[in-house]
Design a protein around this nucleic acid. Structure first.
Length: 571
RNA sequence: GGCAGGGUAGCUCAGUGGUAGAGCAGCGGACUCAUAAGCCGCCGGUCGUGGGUUCAAAUCCCACCCCUGUCACCA
């Protein structure tokens, strides 16, 4: 069967796409906010692009450095390496459980990353974009370390409130400098911090303002908030930024005489996008076997890089990392930074520290991955924060996944199995107008849904696909094959044949969002191979194909789940 | 406080100058193949507030209120 969608999938030049996902911080397990904010949208996008036949590389890794990892290790009486290793393994298990299809998920604690990051540092220095300067900082004499602003508390110099943090006063909302605090106290040891001078390397961000403005000026496909927020930052003017810290856990500075300093975690973590690609190219996972293949993603002018991140990371991906790339001089700038807003939990921000969090490893002990993937895409925080409640989760699962989509598959397969010897019925030579219309609607949806997915409008794409499922339910209801089979067997055969074919199209269209259940449905349609390899088009269901016994794709959830889970959230 | 995004039906959200939309919830109906699912219809909104521009504003302008992010040493 030749259709418009076959042509669509056919004569295209494959594109090269780097899906670069934020590096999770290895000091705790992942929660629902991580999934909704970056990992799930990145995975759906990557899966879709692979189905289109594009060459996709999806990279990320654990961010193993930074002060909180060190502090946690000290509290537990262990090493930063041990803390990082524990959560790195947890992350790998979480990706596996939710089907987040990384081509490589490495960490910043590899010799490769350290080398790539150090080379990057040296190159920027050689090209004149790094300079050294003295800074006055607060030092904790008991904990024997320099203190980030957040680790200092004191009296607010603006409003006089007690307990103001070094970066901000929660009472009056002022942005502070820790040096301004009255009666400062270290949160690590309760000691009174001392002022100490320290020499650090600074990145000359101020040198890139005009180039960044010109670059972002052409990015009209960016999300409004990402673009305007960045343009606002550039308008206000960029300040040079220190990119080294007084620490001993992190990437060493590749110069003599800096043993007690490390490269700032954010400077080296964004380089991880590059180092992970380099690591992949040199690994067995690279089918070409060419260790230089990383260049296809970073120096080819036809490759596109997408950064999937949460909104709090926008400045690092639209200003700092692009500045570093410009300073490097030989790498591609990002094509898009589809930053998501936040997933709130019953109205409050999902946060590790404040409770009210769904831990992903715990979720997987009790539920299948697809319902959460569905819920978080249908209600994705693409343009504004979106709220997660267990009531809504159960409703989406029961009313939309089970009732509209899963039940459509189940009812069609059951009627077919029972009345047509468990094989795909043969349609008449000419399909009726309503049958042709439904098939056509399904095939056209590939273009609309694909266009939405390609522009990272995942919520809209999913909605459009689910509307086809609804149209199929309407078609079934109008033609009632369960009663037609008794009076006009050919009529019923046509209906079921058409419904099976539309379901086949939907299984492909929904696969990026629902990979686990769509893989099951694929087999139940009598298809061989896997959905992803079949490409972004409806795979025809051919008359006479034997159909295995159907099983429900999703589990209906009892309303009691809501109370159980809300009790867990409160604890 | 500055900058950015958001505020639309009971709930979750679409909708950027031309008669306010969808799904769910609620109410009613016809059906019964299916995980009591699916289908049809009804009910439901002074579009955050107050001004302004316009023949016409959810949409453009001004002021204000609320939520979120960010403001360079959290990452």
């Amino acid at each position: 069967m030749t259709t418009a969608t076959n042509a669509l999938a056919g004569d295209r030049t494959p594109e090269t796409i780097l899906v670069a996902v934020a590096w999770p911080y290895a000091n705790n397990h992942l929660h629902a906010g991580h999934l909704a904010g970056a990992y799930l949208p990145a995975d759906i996008f990557a899966r879709y692009q692979r189905m289109r036949g594009n060459r996709v590389l999806m990279v990320s890794g654990s961010d193993s450095h930074g002060t909180p990892v060190t502090v946690r290790a000290e509290q537990e009486g262990t090493t930063p390496e041990a803390v990082f290793q524990r959560y790195h393994q947890s992350f790998l298990d979480t990706w596996d459980g939710f089907g987040i299809s990384f081509d490589i998920f490495t960490s910043t604690d590899t010799p490769n990353h350290i080398k790539v990051a150090q080379d990057f540092f040296l190159r920027l220095r050689e090209r004149g974009y790094l300079y050294e300067a003295e800074q006055e900082l607060l030092y904790d004499p008991v904990a024997q370390r320099f203190l980030p602003d957040r680790y200092v508390e004191g009296t607010c110099p603006r409003c006089g409130a007690e307990g103001a943090r070094g970066d901000q006063c929660d009472n009056c909302g002022s942005t502070l400098d820790a040096l301004e605090l009255i009666n400062p106290i270290s949160k690590l040891s309760n000691a009174t911090p001392e002022r100490r001078a320290s020499s650090h390397f600074f990145l000359k961000l101020s040198a890139f303002t005009e180039q960044l403005q010109a670059w972002i000026g052409g990015k009209e496909h960016w999300r409004t908030n990402v673009r305007n927020f960045t343009l606002g930052m550039l308008r206000e003017g960029l300040k040079d930024r220190a990119i080294t810290r007084d620490l001993t856990w992190g990437v060493p500075i590749p110069l003599e005489g800096y043993d007690d300093k490390r490269i700032y975690v954010w400077f080296e973590a964004v380089i991880g996008y590059l180092s992970a690609t380099v690591e992949w190219a040199a690994s067995e996972a690279n089918p070409t076997g060419n260790a230089e293949a990383w260049r296809d993603f970073w120096t080819s002018d036809t490759s596109r890089t997408y950064h999937f991140i949460g909104k709090d990371n926008i400045p690092f991906h639209t200003v700092i990392w692009p500045s570093m790339i410009l300073g490097h001089g030989d790498l591609n700038l990002p094509y898009d930074v589809p930053a998501n807003q936040y997933l709130t939990m019953g109205g409050t921000k999902a946060s590790k520290s404040r409770g009210g969090v769904i831990w992903l490893p715990e979720y997987l002990e009790r539920y299948d991955p697809d319902p959460l993937r569905y819920m978080m895409t249908a209600n994705a925080p693409e343009t504004s924060d979106s709220d997660f409640t267990w009531t809504e989760f159960v409703r989406r699962n029961n009313d939309e996944l089970v009732a509209r989509w899963g039940n459509l598959v189940n009812r069609v397969l059951t009627i077919t199995g029972r009345n047509f010897d468990a094989a795909v019925p043969a349609p008449p030579a000419d399909l009726s107008p309503e049958s042709r219309a439904l098939i056509e609607r399904c095939d056209e949806a590939f273009e609309a849904v694909g266009n939405d997915f390609d522009h990272v409008n995942l919520r809209r794409g999913l909605t459009a696909a689910m509307e086809v499922a609804q149209a199929a339910n309407q078609y079934l209801d109008a033609r009632a094959p369960w009663s037609a089979v008794k009076t006009d067997r050919d009529h019923a055969a046509e209906t079921l044949y058409v419904a099976l074919n539309v379901i086949s199209g939907l299984v492909t269209m929904l696969h990026p969002v629902l990979p686990f259940s769509c893989a099951k449905a694929w087999t139940m349609l009598g298809h061989s191979g896997d959905v992803e390899a079949a490409g972004w088009q409806r795979t025809p269901v051919l008359p006479g194909t034997p159909l295995p016994a159907p099983a429900p794709l999703f589990k209906k959830l009892d309303d009691a789940v809501v109370a159980e889970e809300e009790a867990r959230l409160g604890s």
